[in-house]
Design a protein around this nucleic acid. Sequence first.
DNA 1: TTGTAAGCGTTATCAA
DNA 2: TTGATAACGCTTACAA
Lengths: 326, 326
Amino acid sequence: MKRKATMRDVAAAANVGVMTVSRVVNGDQRVTEERRRRVHAAIKELGFQPNATARALRPGQRTATIALIIEDVSNPFYSAVAHGAEEVARRHQHLVIVSATRRDWKTERDLVTEMVRRSVDGLLIVPAPHDHTELDIAQSTPVVYLDRVPDGIEADSVVLPNESGAREAVGWLLGRGHTRIAYLGGHPDVRSGAGRLGGYRRALCDAGLTERPELIRSNLHSAEQAADAVQELLVSERPPTAIFSDNNRMSVGVLHALEKSGQTVEVAGFDDVELASLVRTPLLLVTHDAVELGRQATTLLFERMNGLSTPPQTITLPAVVNVYNG
Amino acid sequence: MKRKATMRDVAAAANVGVMTVSRVVNGDQRVTEERRRRVHAAIKELGFQPNATARALRPGQRTATIALIIEDVSNPFYSAVAHGAEEVARRHQHLVIVSATRRDWKTERDLVTEMVRRSVDGLLIVPAPHDHTELDIAQSTPVVYLDRVPDGIEADSVVLPNESGAREAVGWLLGRGHTRIAYLGGHPDVRSGAGRLGGYRRALCDAGLTERPELIRSNLHSAEQAADAVQELLVSERPPTAIFSDNNRMSVGVLHALEKSGQTVEVAGFDDVELASLVRTPLLLVTHDAVELGRQATTLLFERMNGLSTPPQTITLPAVVNVYNG
DNA sequence: TTGTAAGCGTTATCAA
DNA sequence: TTGATAACGCTTACAA
């Protein structure tokens, strides 16, 4: 691991000043052909690469980096978001630091602090469930929130139609004659979860049904936990005849549990699930384009980074309802 | 967006020298309690955050960043790898820049160059199909390759048992009486693909069968392409009675196409597929722990970053065979 | 224990 | 067109 060549080394080798090297590297035209050639030769010979850290040190200079702070990289929803974000960032010649909060708001706070220290040019955040009032860092770095509107602050965000999507999904189950519909979801205080749970309640209410607390299972965070919850529900005194699942992990758990039990329970859920079409039981999924969500959020972020100063906006992307085996 | 406070500002506000501030920030004990308090007060008042860029500028100092260069962030295999990498990096107080090559080796080369410019402390790379001889950057930055051993150079890598896994999968199909087994895969020159195709051929050979070129479909890169290929195979003169699929995307496409056609064709494949257990047709999957692959590669990378100088090693992770509906 | 001075690699400024 | 010089914010070396 040898020491890297610097501009000084190149300048010495080419017998020119460092500024000439800098100009050549940055494509400044005001350098004579002769010197330019010598510099290029020296760069090649020494294997010189400009040091991006030093370049970014200068105030006003950008690091050409944005940060994406999500719950969990391996969740297909978030990895699709990351894909979209990375695509747009690349188009703007930026790289993306991806970090996971694992749903812990303290981790989120620490990560945001670290990103600010590193002078990232912008932040994309899926906010963890917690009041964000004191975390408002929008003064120093542009931020766009994803999937959820953070509690306590006004900020740019790109979200999904959580309530209406959930209402439609549960409405479908109601239309098929179900009256005992269970809800499986994660943290009820996360705005997206609250919206979906709200849609579930609204649909029941609209149908003149009263909510059954024993059919509502929150704070589930993995397919396994969801499967266990379904198991419990199925052996309860009055089991549900249908299930609404708040997100893709829940849906996977539900389908596994139903497969295992052999019972026919109809399912509706938020998010897409790979191979959903191969499932035996009737199934409705409220799907959306998570890659596009990442793209739009990142596009808005770059607009802010480039000085857009309109008031904070919330973009709601469309959802599409898919029915399988209906 | 106001100017950020610097150490000088803090020093002035606290009426001490910059070095005292630096010492306090870095937890150096040799500062009197009195001055430490004043510095902390000033830091809080000014909202000071140390500038990580400036800190990393010093030679020998680390950027506390590693880069992960993969094909596609949204592929579940790679996002699982990213998850494992991020976990280990975090434990070492590093952040991860994630970038996608989209299987283009020029993009890979450009990304590696960019990462070196940014002085990342280490690189994790899923090599694109291409001779890597001239890309050997291991002299300046530690690198661990993932999933595939790059052509042309000796380097650390963490891989899966591609050939033996494929052989076992195809062997299972042979054992069930199939003799016309199709192969669906991606780029045949990628070492992982070559290994799996090799395992397929080896299994056929061991069974005394000759390879049918018309049953081998390479250069498929999405579930859709794989589904189309299956469609074609099924309507051909002598369709296959079984299919081996090289990776998760292929498997998803195969299962969708079979569902659509209604024909019963048995399937064996590499990688896990969500909801595989819900599929009707007999199915064998060679599964593995992609998160662990990310973890091990990153662990090895940090060992190299910390000076481990043993010869390059190749770690092969175990695979597990899962049979559904068998 | 504290602070001063130098320098990391680059670019902006400005004088030649 | 060129290049010497001074920053950028921080840490190491060294002196007080």
